[in-house]
Write a protein that binds this DNA or RNA. Structure first.
Lengths: 147, 147
DNA sequence: AAAAAATAGTTGCATAGGCAACTTTTCATT
DNA sequence: AATGAAAAGTTGCCTATGCAACTATTTTTT
């Protein structure tokens, strides 16, 4: 069977390069983009919640959010109801670049799905989702990791 | 448009975890697997060639192959016809674990495509290939990188 | 043939990201 | 209420990977 994995990792590495290039003007590093995107969709949430939603290690999240805070894109407040939690909010500065950031995401999707029919785009999305789910189930069944 | 990129990167990260787990007995790190797999298919080639085929930075290849050599899975010989080149060969030790290594790749593909029809598996492979191609074209058109 | 350009590899530096150990706080059990 | 377990964050350590600068060789130009 030919390798799905090879293409996944290739696409992932190119995405990495794309966001690294695109981030230059903003001071943000490529890896922070997805956190920003997530927060545009929903802020005022804990880091743990972000990690779970993005399926990312909480240590990685901690560092990414720290970085965004240092750059002035988010602020963190200790939750009043649970003082273990940091509640993360976007700043004005972050809202100011929302259109630009979201645009880079749509453009990347457009690049990937260039010459795809509407149907193909839907199928790929659905099958990727299914594969991610299969991968997750397999990994989490072996060891209960904190994600 | 919902994010293809998110699923790609999620699957990639899980693949990473899978190969990290599976590599434990062999002394190899997860990242070296794909180089081994490539060499089973074709050895006696230069690092540059490997990089180009795998679409991987040549620095990364240099380090991975160094590591495989240190572990006794490959040896490098200076090419007689072009003394810039290292020609990479698998050792007996590497051939001895071929079945095991190849098996881990098939199993990962099986895990990802669990409950996929034959047709779905073919479609996903074809569309991933197409997306990788689109990504590559876009990146390489901007800057001529050494891959 | 000499100079310039291209190629193959190596290495330093940077980011991304996982894992595990640790701290602080909260929750559950007794 | 006290003790133990769980949860949220932080941080150190490790690997993977890209990029750029560098060396050594080969190829191309002049």
């Amino acid at each position: 069977m030919e390798s799905i994995g090879k293409w996944i990792s290739t696409i992932h590495r190119y995405a990495h390069m794309y966001f690294a290039q695109e981030s230059e003007g903003l001071g943000i590093c490529g890896g922070q983009f997805m956190f920003l995107k997530f927060l545009y969709h929903q802020d005022g949430v804990s880091q743990e919640y972000i990690s779970k939603q993005l399926l990312i290690d909480k240590g990685t999240t901690a560092r990414a959010i720290q970085n965004l805070e240092k750059l002035g894109y988010v602020i963190r407040k200790k939750s009043q109801t649970d003082r273990r939690q940091n509640v993360v909010f976007l700043t004005e500065k972050a809202h100011g670049i929302k259109a630009e950031v979201m645009d880079k995401f749509s453009r990347w999707t457009e690049i990937l799905t260039k010459d795809f029919s509407q149907e193909e785009t839907e199928i790929i999305l659905q099958l990727l989702h299914k594969m991610a789910h299969n991968a997750m189930e397999h990994i989490q069944q072996k060891e209960n990791c904190n994600r």
